[in-house]
Amino acid sequence: MTKQLHKVCRELLESGKVQVIIGYGQKDRGQPPHPVFITSPEEVEGLVWNDQCVANLTTYLTRKEIRALGKPAIIVKGCDARAIVVLQRESQIDRSAMVVIGMACNGVGEPRLAKCAACDAHVPAHVDITIGEAVSEPVDPERRYNDLNVFMTQSTDERMDYWQDELERCVRCYACRQVCPLCYCERCVADKNRPVRFSTAPTLKGNYAWHITRAFHLAGRCIGCDECTRACPAGINLRLLNLSVARAAENAFGYRAGLDPEAEPVIGSFSTQDKESFIK
C-alpha cells in the first residue's frame, strides 16, 4: 500500500494537479507518525501508511498556513473522510479543488482505538482515490454507543460526581478545539471578551460552560474521530459527551454527520413531525 501511495502522490505532484500532499511521516517505527506537508515529488518517499496513523489530518484543510501552500491532496481514513463531507456541506472547503486519497483501514492505534471497534468505514466513502482493500460492514448502532451506554447505567448523582472530578482537571489549553477538524471558527466563543460569553478561568464553573459549549457546537457535526479526546493532556473523556449528542441525533432524527454530502444538517433544519415528548 505504501508503494502505491508513493506512486499516486508522485504523479499528483509531478503533473501539477496538486501542490501539496497532506500525509503522515514517521522518523522510525517506534515513534508515532506525525503530519507532513510534502511539496516536491522527490520527497514522497517520506510518506508512510501503517496502523499507527491515528491523526485525523483533515483539520489542516482549513488552516491558512496550509492553504497558502496551494491545492492539496490529503490522505484520510474512512472515519476522517467524514469530516471532509461536513466541511464541504458547511462551505468551508472547495471540494473540487482538492484530491482526497482514502486508505482502506482495518483499525489504528496500539491498543486499537475505541472507535475502531464499531467502525463501518473501513473503506472510505466520498474520496477520489482509494488505496488498499478492506470490507465495510454495517454496524449495530448500539455498538457505536457502547461506552456511553455503560456510562449511563450510573445514576445522575454518580455522573455529576464523575464529571466534577474530570472537569476539575481541564486546564483550558483548547487542544481539543485546535485538533478538531470541525472547530474551525476564526474566533471561538471561548475567546470572546467583549462581552465575555463564559468564564475563561480554568475553574469548574468556566470548565462546565466550555465543555457544554464545545460539545454542543459540534452537535450533529462531530464525526467521532476522537481526536479531541486523544489530544487532551488531562485525559478527559470528551468522547462520552460527543457520543451522547451523536446518539440523540441518530435516535431522534436518524441522522449521522458526514455520511451524506446532500443531507440537510440535523441542526439548521427541522420537521413539523419532530417528537416533543419533553415539552408540556
Binding site: R159, M160, A219, L240, V245, R247, F270, D274, E276, F278
Partner: peptide, 24 residues
C-alpha cells in the same frame, strides 16, 4: 419556524446535559 428549530436543538441538548449528570 423558530420554535421548530428550538425543539430540535433541545432534543439533542437534553441528552448532553443528562450525560453530564445535570438534573433534568
Amino acid at each position: 419556524s423558530g420554535n421548530y428549530h428550538a425543539r430540535r436543538r433541545w432534543t439533542l441538548f437534553r441528552e448532553l446535559l443528562d450525560t453530564l449528570g445535570i438534573e433534568m
